[in-house]
Simulated assay, not measured.
Amino acid sequence: MQFLRTLFWVVLAVFLAIIARNNWTDVTINLWGSLQADIKLPLLVGIAVLAGFLPPFLWLRARLWSLQRRLSVANPPAPAPAVPAPSEPIGPAQ
């Protein structure tokens, strides 16, 4: 199963690399005023994906963090059971 998972990710990475190489062209972005920037198309797509992915991901992680804090305050972990002291010394018999 691990092999199939690795094979899937390798095939996906090769596929994305081929698409990026075939679309490696400059794109001009008009920023403000007469300021322009040239950027490669795959890099621009990657930035757009991150800009769309990161805010919901960070919101979700913050929400999970706050819920875990609430649960830890409401339900403190149970104390570990006490380990009784051994009645006989541990080690080789003499």
Rank of each mutant, 00 (worst) to 15 (best):
I19E: 07
L16H: 04
Q2M: 11
W24C: 10
T25M: 13
N22E: 15
L31H: 06
L44S: 02
F8Y: 14
K40H: 11
D38I: 06
L16T: 02
F3G: 03
I19G: 03
P42L: 07
K40C: 08
M1V: 12
L43Q: 02
A37V: 15
G46A: 14
I47T: 05
W32C: 10
D26K: 14
Q36H: 03
R21T: 12
R21S: 14
A17N: 03
A13Q: 00
V45A: 10
A20E: 06
L35R: 14
R21I: 11
A13K: 00
L44G: 01
Q36C: 00
L16E: 07
R21M: 14
N23K: 06
G46P: 01
T28E: 12
D38V: 08
W32H: 10
F8D: 15
L4K: 13
A13I: 00
I18F: 12
Q2I: 09
T28H: 03
L31S: 09
A37Y: 09
V10T: 05
N22W: 12
L41N: 02
L41W: 02
N22S: 14
I19V: 14
A48G: 09
L12M: 08
S34H: 02
G33N: 04
I18V: 15
G33P: 00
A48Y: 05
A37F: 10
L35H: 11
L43I: 07
I39K: 04
F8T: 13
W24S: 11
V11G: 07
A20W: 05
W32A: 14
L43R: 01
V45W: 05
W32T: 14
W9G: 02
L41R: 05
N23S: 09
L7N: 08
I47R: 06
L35A: 13
N23W: 05
Q2Y: 09
A17T: 06
V27T: 10
W32Y: 12
F8R: 15
D38H: 08
M1E: 12
I39G: 05
D38L: 03
L35C: 11
Q36L: 01
L4I: 09
V10D: 00
L43C: 01
F3M: 08
F8W: 13
I19P: 00
N23C: 05
L43W: 01
R5P: 02
V10P: 00
F15M: 07
A13P: 00
N23R: 07
A13R: 01
L12I: 06
Q36S: 08
L4Q: 13
L44V: 00
D26Y: 10
L41A: 04
L7K: 08
